[in-house]
Amino acid sequence: MTPENPMLSCPLRYPFGQRHTLDLEPDYRRCGPVTAVELPSGSTGWLVTDHALVRQVLADPRFSRERANQPHVARLSTEVLPSAAILATDPPRHTGLRTLIAPIFAPRQVAAMEPAVTSLAHRLVDELVADEEPADIVTRFTEPFAAEVVCEIFGVPEHFRHQVFVLGDALTARDATLESLAVARAECESLARAMAAENPTVLFGRLGASAESDEEVLNLIIACLIGGRGSPTVFLSSAVFALLREPRHFRHLVKRAELIPAAVEELLRFVPVGVGGGFTRVATQDVQLGPVLVRVGDAIIPAMHAAGRDPRVFDDPDSLVLDRGTRLPHLAFGHGTHYCVGAGLARLEARIALETLTTRLPGLRLADPADNGTWRTGRVVRSLERLDVAWT
Rank of each mutant, 00 (worst) to 15 (best):
L293I: 12
P232R: 00
R379H: 10
T49I: 10
E133D: 11
G325Q: 03
C188D: 09
F279G: 04
A223M: 09
I260M: 02
A121R: 02
A263L: 03
P329L: 00
H338C: 11
G274Q: 08
L218I: 01
R161N: 04
L236G: 02
P261R: 05
T21G: 11
L320N: 11
R386P: 01
P71H: 05
V57E: 05
S77T: 11
H162N: 14
E216I: 14
S83F: 08
R269W: 05
L354Q: 01
L364E: 00
T2I: 13
H330P: 00
G276C: 11
S238H: 01
A262I: 02
E79Y: 10
A194E: 15
A343I: 01
P369Q: 12
A147M: 03
L22C: 13
T142Q: 03
E66T: 04
A116G: 15
R256P: 13
Q18D: 15
R229C: 05
E212K: 03
Y28F: 15
T142D: 04
S83M: 09
E212Y: 00
T2Y: 10
R93W: 12
E25T: 03
G277Y: 02
M304V: 15
W46D: 01
R65W: 15
A192N: 12
S83V: 15
L354A: 00
V292C: 06
L218W: 00
D371H: 09
T356M: 06
C31I: 04
E4Q: 12
Y28W: 14
A186T: 11
R324L: 09
H252L: 15
R30D: 15
I104V: 14
D50Y: 04
R13W: 04
G342T: 08
A176H: 08
F250A: 11
A184Q: 02
G308F: 02
V156E: 02
F16I: 00
M1L: 13
A353F: 07
T44H: 14
G168S: 08
R19M: 15
V80S: 07
A85K: 04
I137E: 06
G276E: 10
G290M: 02
P362Q: 07
E148Q: 14
V273Y: 04
Q56A: 14
A146M: 02
L225M: 00
I221A: 08
G342P: 10
V183E: 12
D50C: 11
G205N: 06
P115R: 02
V73L: 05
L361M: 07
S231G: 12
A68D: 00
F314R: 03
G230C: 06
A306N: 08
V271T: 02
V292I: 10
T78V: 13
F279R: 08
E148K: 10
V164N: 01
F105L: 03
R269L: 06
Q56G: 13
E349V: 12
L47E: 06
P232W: 01
A88V: 07
G17V: 02
I153T: 04
V129D: 08
A209E: 15
A102W: 06
A211M: 01
R229F: 11
E143Q: 14
D368F: 09
T280A: 12
E4S: 13
E187Q: 15
L203C: 07
G278M: 08
L244A: 07
P272D: 09
P291M: 05
L181D: 15
P103R: 12
D315L: 12
I104S: 07
P61H: 12
L243Y: 10
V149W: 00
